[in-house]
Amino acid sequence: MKKSFFLSLTVAIALMTAMPTFAKKANKLTSKEQKEGWTLLFNGESFDGWRQCNSKVMATNWTIEDDAMKVLLGEGKQPGQGSGGDILYEVKKYTDFELSIDWKASDMANSGIFYYVREVPGKPIYYAAPEIQVLDNENASDNKIDSHLAGSLYDMLPADPKTVHPAGKWNTCVIKAKDGQVTITMNGTEVVSYSHWTKEWDNLVQNSKFKDFDGFTEGISKGGYIGLQDHGYPVWFRNIKIREL
Rank of each mutant, 00 (worst) to 15 (best):
D155N: 15
K209L: 03
A140D: 02
S100N: 06
F47S: 10
K77E: 03
K176I: 02
W38G: 09
M19D: 01
S83Q: 05
A12L: 15
E190T: 14
D136H: 05
W201H: 07
S152I: 11
S106Y: 00
K32V: 06
Y225I: 07
Q206P: 11
N207A: 14
S152N: 13
G227A: 10
Y233C: 00
K169D: 14
G74V: 07
P124T: 02
L9W: 03
D214L: 05
N137K: 06
W62P: 05
K28M: 11
G227Y: 01
M186G: 09
E244Q: 10
S195H: 15
W197F: 10
Y127F: 15
V91F: 04
A23L: 12
S152A: 07
G180F: 03
Y194H: 14
V57T: 13
V164T: 12
V134W: 03
E131Q: 10
Y127N: 10
D179L: 05
F114W: 02
Y233G: 00
E244H: 01
P234Y: 15
K35Y: 00
G215V: 07
K123Y: 01
A23F: 12
L228D: 13
K77Y: 00
S193T: 14
I64R: 11
Q34D: 10
S221Y: 03
N110K: 06
V71S: 08
R243L: 07
L41R: 02
G223H: 11
T172M: 04
L9I: 03
I87F: 00
N239W: 02
A177P: 07
N171C: 07
N171W: 03
D107P: 00
P130A: 13
M156N: 10
P121C: 10
D96S: 03
G84W: 04
M156C: 14
D142W: 04
M58F: 00
I240T: 05
K162I: 01
R243K: 15
K169A: 14
P79Q: 06
D67F: 14
W170Q: 13
N187T: 01
W197D: 07
K70H: 11
K162C: 00
S193N: 14
N54S: 05
W62C: 12
V192P: 12
M19H: 09
S111V: 05
E200R: 10
V164I: 04
E138F: 00
F216N: 04
I240R: 00
D155Y: 00
L72Y: 01
E131P: 13
S46F: 02
E131T: 09
A109F: 05
L245E: 10
A109L: 01
E218T: 14
I87R: 03
E131S: 12
P158Y: 01
S152C: 11
F47G: 02
K209Y: 08
Y154V: 02
A68P: 01
W38A: 12
A68K: 08
V117F: 05
